[in-house]
């Protein structure tokens, strides 16, 4: 690979690396933790770090927010950052909260059915249900319910 690790290169890519670290922290919470609410929070961290990657791509050094002066007299010297990622992420945030709330609603229903929100306990209960079904219908279905 023909990349030189100059200071400029490292500083210019530091944002991507930091967001990768954040994203992996979120992924770790989702994979390793058993509590469903905590998984949702981890998913949110993951999601926010993706937003940051997008927004950081739209930034131009020395640029400003993409809002023109009120009188619409635009100084050609002024650099505006790219507004397109902002639009995409703006809607993504609101959709994100909507899906998060759907996930939380599912958790509430799980709590009502299983009386727990720990993944391990839920798996244990499901295994017990399968075994109980095996005991009742096992012979008819060849021991595999």
């Amino acid at each position: 690979m023909g990349f030189e690790l100059t200071q400029e290169y490292i500083l210019g890519h530091m944002n991507y690396w930091l967001f990768s670290v954040l994203m992996m922290t979120g992924l770790y919470i989702v994979v390793a933790k058993g509590n469903l609410v905590k998984k949702i929070v981890g998913l949110n961290i993951f999601q926010t770090s993706v937003f940051m990657v997008y927004i950081s791509m739209g930034k131009i050094t020395g640029g400003t927010a993409p809002i023109f002066p009120q009188d619409m007299e635009i100084d050609p010297e002024v650099v505006y950052s790219n507004p397109l990622p902002h639009v995409l992420i703006l809607t993504a945030i609101v959709v994100g909260i909507a899906t998060t709330s759907l996930g939380l609603a599912l958790i509430v229903r799980i709590q009502e059915e299983f009386n727990t929100i720990e993944e391990d306990d839920i798996l244990k209960i499901e295994r017990a249900i399968v075994q109980a079904e095996n005991a009742i219908h096992g012979d008819a279905m060849g021991g595999r319910a």
């Binding site: 990349f3 400029e8 500083l11 210019g12 890519h13 944002n15 930034k59 050094t61």
Partner: peptide, 8 residues
């Protein structure tokens, strides 16, 4: 990210 453009 190695061949991404520099930030800004």
């Amino acid at each position: 990210t190695l061949d991404m453009p520099n930030f800004g």
